[in-house]
Design a protein around this nucleic acid. Sequence first.
DNA 1: ATATTATGTAACTTTTAGGTTACAAACTTA
DNA 2: TAAGTTTGTAACCTAAAAGTTACATAATAT
Lengths: 108, 108
Amino acid sequence: MATPNLDVFQVIADPSRRQILQMLTKDSYNINSISEKFEMSRPAVSKHIKILQTAGFISIQIVGREHYCALNKKGFEEIRKWINHFDQFWNSKLKNLEKLLNNKKTIN
Amino acid sequence: MATPNLDVFQVIADPSRRQILQMLTKDSYNINSISEKFEMSRPAVSKHIKILQTAGFISIQIVGREHYCALNKKGFEEIRKWINHFDQFWNSKLKNLEKLLNNKKTIN
DNA sequence: ATATTATGTAACTTTTAGGTTACAAACTTA
DNA sequence: TAAGTTTGTAACCTAAAAGTTACATAATAT
């Protein structure tokens, strides 16, 4: 794994990475304890951690030889922005429908 | 492209597919007019459309030989649910901090 | 009927994400 | 100092996503 530079959407596309993020809603864990919960090897998890950190989904606090991972708000923001954008689309569509119905009312 | 069955996160991981969704916030287009806006071949776009439809991000209305694509709310819901879940995490973290500060206040 | 337009799909190739093992580095403990 | 932990990384392999071209199908237009 040559740690590719992925955009935030590609980062959360991987189920294992989403599992890691899910896990970090419970507590902060070091990389070893995270990899223990997964089928794959520790280096594989290590790469995922690196990708998550680079994309801003987690931050890492080094305590001695242990690297503790915690959720980082930053990475999620672009996703939320994207979803909000489409929510606006649905809302404006709904408003247009309401306008249409109101016009009909005044006409009849 | 053997039209793989991707989960919603994998579906929006592809930049071209996100561009298509973005395009459909402006208007409803048939597949040919969508592919005209892209560098890649028409069959490639056609596959993306299929993937977007299968995952519930767009719906297709067939008018004669033309297939008109429009945004479908369904596909976005799982993404929003996922984002909301993490928003709850940040909110509860904030509440805990507030509680902590309030306790300090009453102690001092 | 023929030509044109819009689309789907099969077969194939290329690229790369995601996994592995092996080894190095850095910190901790006995 | 030596042994044990925790982590990073290099080198490699595999599976599959994403593209291509070529061809088939179906609706429309002339």
